[in-house]
Design a protein around this nucleic acid. Sequence first.
DNA 1: AATGAATGAGCGTTCATTCAT
DNA 2: CATGAATGAACGCTCATTCAT
Lengths: 212, 212, 212, 212
Amino acid sequence: MEKKKVPTSIKDQQLIEKRRNQMIKGAVNLFKEKGFHRTTTREIAKASGFSIGTLYEYIRTKEDVLFLVCDSIYERVKERMEQAIDMEKQSISSLKNAVRSYFQLIDDMQDEVIVMYQEVKSLPKDAQEYVMQKEKDMVHMLERVIQNSLPYDLSDKEITLIANNIFVQGQMWSFRRWILQKDFTLEEYIEKQLSLLFQMLNLDEHVTKIKG
Amino acid sequence: MEKKKVPTSIKDQQLIEKRRNQMIKGAVNLFKEKGFHRTTTREIAKASGFSIGTLYEYIRTKEDVLFLVCDSIYERVKERMEQAIDMEKQSISSLKNAVRSYFQLIDDMQDEVIVMYQEVKSLPKDAQEYVMQKEKDMVHMLERVIQNSLPYDLSDKEITLIANNIFVQGQMWSFRRWILQKDFTLEEYIEKQLSLLFQMLNLDEHVTKIKG
Amino acid sequence: MEKKKVPTSIKDQQLIEKRRNQMIKGAVNLFKEKGFHRTTTREIAKASGFSIGTLYEYIRTKEDVLFLVCDSIYERVKERMEQAIDMEKQSISSLKNAVRSYFQLIDDMQDEVIVMYQEVKSLPKDAQEYVMQKEKDMVHMLERVIQNSLPYDLSDKEITLIANNIFVQGQMWSFRRWILQKDFTLEEYIEKQLSLLFQMLNLDEHVTKIKG
Amino acid sequence: MEKKKVPTSIKDQQLIEKRRNQMIKGAVNLFKEKGFHRTTTREIAKASGFSIGTLYEYIRTKEDVLFLVCDSIYERVKERMEQAIDMEKQSISSLKNAVRSYFQLIDDMQDEVIVMYQEVKSLPKDAQEYVMQKEKDMVHMLERVIQNSLPYDLSDKEITLIANNIFVQGQMWSFRRWILQKDFTLEEYIEKQLSLLFQMLNLDEHVTKIKG
DNA sequence: AATGAATGAGCGTTCATTCAT
DNA sequence: CATGAATGAACGCTCATTCAT
């Protein structure tokens, strides 16, 4: 898929990158604290370290900021997932590693994940679709890991479902932190979810069976 | 927990109830369509069938409307979950029924579920906690069903985790509809999730094992 | 032609009329001084005697104010022209009276005429057409007076041209005041223009010939 | 009258002239399309073929551009009027030629004439007076032609009035095009106006009397 | 108890102008 | 001389909230 471009009146590509990174950094913090709608463009400009006029040299609308933020989060998540998932030698343990890395990464980016999940709907339709596509790509990565790791075959639907479950269980660690993070450490959470997963997949040679 | 009260200047309790129901009905539709922030108080008043002045006789702030709406949705969800879960005779099949009913109900109230999950963060802190408590109550219900249905014992943590997983898999049917509902019918989704769940719980006598 | 309606959220028709008159009065003065573009909506609100919020209860856009102003000016001009032109007993002297009244009226409404002539182009297309139609109506009135007053026949084109000439000579008294009003009093201007007109129409029994 | 100078920080006179001509050319088209206020300095710079920074090396304010444009238009109009009016051998037919040329020229420069008449009011006071002076000069030229062409004497006031009428009838062809140019071709318009003029001046040996 | 006109703080956005490079 | 990134005052407009009737 084509990278969606946000128009700007600035010509220096490096400067665009630099300023937009400032912007994203500033905006994520604000969105996390008060949400997209309650954050003003002036606050974004200030948090980014430049004036409101300069902000608008690099975007057209406030929604562009949100898009830039979402896009950057996905990009970073995807990048890290790709690193974590070594597609060469796939085995049960590589599935385990992939899931672990994914959960780890969600934990690192908790705030970003929350921002994304609460604000994508504020994006204009086309940007929403673009972002959904990215999410589909990520679920797809999980699907492939599962498929390649299992010593037996599962139907596509089952794989899809399991991948989505894992994906959402990751996000859940962020957006249900108020209920989960008082009962579980990250490690516990990861190991318990993995244990359930492997139980489900009948791959429990490596983990204690839920019920003996 | 005490029912959270929204102050009003009106004395007649019946009238308050009536007007607030009009309000919730009108507002929920608007929130579904355009979200809380994009909906104006005038629109809410109009959709409720009275004037902006009257609206403000029954609430103090716009956020009160959101709270009323969220509260009402939770109430309805909880009510239906309670009906679905027959706590008397608990068995494996009653767990199955409970999960089925829960997924069914989420499907019925898709829009409402989305409204809730996208807008709670706009609630003032105290209302957020109130609503979170309700959600905890609901997860608790699931926990009890699981505990009472299983022919063996699981640790509290495992039960909590499984309950949360089920809970979120329900919500996922709503807020990931764009990815799930093109691949699955509701029935398929329910049965496949149940199948995975029972596999995980080693209760697969009733369902085909994922892998023989 | 249908009267173009400017939407408002106010229900009380009398109040609308009252507030809009305040608005028009305030706005004409400002437009006259600094032009439409240099006048801010806050200034209009202030000059109208109410807040910016109230201003926008009675209009949708700043351009609506301009339209209201233009419409009101035309309405007043047209009204006075209609009074001045007694269509019953048309004669040479009634033509004279009509022109005199028209010039008189332009003098009374100098500022308004200037506002109109400098700002109509700032109106949105549809409002421009509406206003042009009104102007055509007014030229038409002059055409009829000419036609009915003359003791002989003129071609339609000649009548159109003469009517337009008179019409513009009127306006010219306003928008070329800096060149005309230092050489002529209004009476002089009227009588001299009438004299030239009657010379042109060969109706000079009542006026001294330009050249004896 | 002294030529009004627009300050610049550039030394090279030829370059100034060159750049300003680029500027006028670009700006006039933009002003035609969208008016002075709706045109941005960036657009002017772009249309002129250089950067916004460079634009501001050759002017101090946006209004300077407008002045340069108006000045240039007046200059061109005046120049052509001077060519058209041969002051040597003045006769009735030279009056006719002068008027014809003037109308012709207005037709050629319709858009420019409209720009001028709609935007002069946006000029600063001193520039307005400068431009008004130019217009007085032009009316003066018409006055002299009339005076020198007539076989009899007219009072100064009569001459002034007739000159202004002619002048405005020319402009009218531009700014009332929506009403005139659907009924008249330019030739028709010229001949009919000339016919009325000569009737008025009792110079109708060459044209059919309006009424025999 | 119901109405709806009034308010004004505050929003997103623009654009003339400056000035370091 | 030329560039274009940076600035921020100012704009048009919205909408939650109040309060006189």
